[in-house]
Simulated assay, not measured.
Amino acid sequence: MTFNPNANIGSGNVGRAGGGGGFGGGGLPLGPLMMLGGGGGGTIVLIILFLLFSGMFSGGGGGGQEQQSAQGGALEHCQTGKDANEKDDCYVQAVVETADAFWQQEAKSAGFTWKEPQGRVFSGSVSTGCGAASSDTGPFYCPADSTIYVDVSFFDELSSRFGANQGQLAKAYVVAHEYGHHIQNLDGTMNRINRRDTGPKSDQVALELQADCYAGVWARNAVETKDPDGNRYMEPLTEQDVKDALSAASAVGDDHIQGEVAGGRVQPDTWTHGSSEKRQQWFITGYNEGSYGACDTFSNRG
């Protein structure tokens, strides 16, 4: 998947975050994470990385006073689709910009009030409205400051450690999934569910599968979104692009990480994100249907 080289991806809500100081503040939900083990002490790093895509930092959903995300500078070198095709930080910015353009319009028919998120690229560690985090966390969404945080070094981890394809839409899936959590924050889903439960039919898994579905909805519609100058942001997707996204969804399935990646026993009762099969299923559902209403994972937990 490539961006139109002439597209204007300049952004007022995406930039580089200032540094943090490791885990602290709001902190990581270490209790639920530790339950995901199953391969000895050597799997602890992998268990921590399993927070990938969870949005499970403390801070909860919307409704409280919004905290400020880490301050940093604009990505001034990220101005065109050509920049996005060549630099991963610009790629993150471009995905957020296309998602802004699509979801702002979709919110009108879906019936929730629109507010764009912030996006922050960081390296090493970062301070957030949900506490401090490190790169080991993987990409995440913090509902307390409505911000998507991405250390782009994770894109290499996605293929080298988790086994996903290296295609660009695999990277876009990562960002679009986190953007899906922002939609859940806006429409109130995060505040309505039990996020402490685990297992294939838990609310927490349904939340993650819904974010996968929203990523698919974005992918279906992103090729039609246009920049402020009327240029389409993206080139048409290919069959290989979709396969790359499905590869990424499979790579971060609970069963794949517990078994093939961590080398442990697959324990469905501890799942927080869903199986590889379900993550692929809901991404492709969103992609095929192309609408917010297609992503009711809470009523379809089979």
Results as ranks from 00 to 15, higher is better:
R192M: 04
H182V: 00
L209A: 07
Y141S: 12
D203A: 02
R120T: 06
D88Q: 12
K171E: 04
L207Y: 11
R196G: 15
G180M: 02
V92I: 10
L186S: 03
Q105D: 14
G199C: 03
N165D: 15
L169V: 12
L186D: 01
G129I: 07
G180N: 00
C78V: 03
A144D: 09
Q210Y: 01
D151I: 01
A107T: 10
Q79K: 13
K108A: 12
Y173P: 00
D100A: 04
S135F: 05
G188N: 04
D151S: 04
Q65Y: 11
K108H: 10
Q67E: 14
F122A: 06
H181Y: 06
Q65C: 13
G129E: 06
E208G: 09
I193E: 02
G180H: 03
N185W: 09
Q67A: 14
Y91P: 03
Q166V: 13
W103Q: 02
V152F: 05
A84H: 01
D88S: 14
Q93W: 12
N191K: 12
A110G: 00
G73N: 13
C142S: 12
G163P: 05
W114T: 07
V96N: 08
G124V: 10
A206R: 06
H77S: 15
Q210P: 04
N191L: 08
G180K: 01
T189K: 09
G119C: 04
F112M: 03
A74N: 09
A144Y: 00
G119P: 08
Q104G: 13
D145P: 01
D89A: 11
F122I: 12
V95W: 08
A84L: 07
G81A: 08
K87Q: 15
L209S: 03
G73L: 02
D136K: 08
T198V: 06
D203F: 01
F112I: 04
G73E: 12
S109L: 11
Q210S: 03
E76S: 15
A206N: 06
G180A: 02
S123Y: 07
I193A: 03
R161F: 12
L169A: 04
D212T: 11
K108F: 10
N191I: 02
T113L: 12
D197E: 14
S135I: 08
E178I: 06
L209I: 04
C90M: 05
R196D: 15
L158I: 03
A211E: 02
V95H: 05
Q204T: 14
A74R: 13
A206T: 04
P143F: 05
S153M: 11
K108G: 12
D89P: 11
C142G: 03
P117M: 02
S153L: 04
C78S: 05
A132D: 15
A110V: 04
E76A: 15
S202C: 08
A94D: 05
R195S: 11
P139H: 05
H182E: 05
Y141A: 10
G111M: 08
Q68W: 03
S202A: 11
Q204K: 10
A176E: 06
C90R: 02
A107F: 09
